[in-house]
Amino acid sequence: MADAAPLVSIFGVCFSYGKNSVLREVSFELDRGKITALLGPNGSGKSTLLKIISGILPLQSPDSGQIRFSGTDFLSLSAPARARQIAYVPADLLAEFPLTAFEAVMMGQICHHPNLFNSSSQAERDQAHWAMEECLCWHLRERDLHSLSGGERQLVTLARALVQGAKVFLLDETLSKMDLNHQAAAGKLLRKWVSRGYSIVLVSHDLNLATEWADECVLLKQGEKIAWGPTREIITTERIRALYPGPELIVAPHPSTGMPKVFFGKMGS
């Protein structure tokens, strides 16, 4: 990429729930055309961080961090403007009310036309159609959200994020319920999107999935960043053991891709 400046910069983000400090001075950058994996055990603050970056969770005070998007103060933008730039993609969609998959995807347009009267229906429909084709869920369009499987709903969620028109996707366990076919397809999609200059953050408990696709990794432990850099350099046995001290983990390269993979060593004793 010719543009050297990072797309999103995260500076010194701190956050606490009551007295529990969840994030401590976390800083890193997201570049165009890269997938960044955010890894860490449960409770290390990954989801909280994604919500803060997207502006869903407000910072507790002006000096508890800053998010800059293309050099501007991102959190000072209006809610719809934020949703147009950075899309937080949740692990699931709430399906309390009867809504079809197509209607759910159309909701991604709300940040473009919050007003009922300036929406241009046909263009919006075409956009939603394209996004659902892209995310392999066009055949589900007439189905009710609650009749879909978890993995299918996640494809719909991805399509909705695409409709938002954002250039940065924050995937919060968004691939967790997909079967291997869908995961592989989603992986290809993410690659395609970053080749168009998008930037993607991936939070996943599936370390091997994350290391397969991510160009960079950020390791979080108890709210602190312990490492950030290219996947091949960052994922080492020592770091992974520091992150997950319980099981005896081993990192070894994948036989054909050479990407670092995490294995259980001896189980039990």
Binding site: P80, L94, I110
Partner: peptide, 18 residues
């Protein structure tokens, strides 16, 4: 449209820019 977004819950609506 805001009401539609609120069907996705508070966080869901925030995600959509409401």
């Amino acid at each position: 449209r805001e009401l539609d977004a609120l069907l996705m819950g508070e966080e869901g609506a925030l995600v959509l820019g409401i």
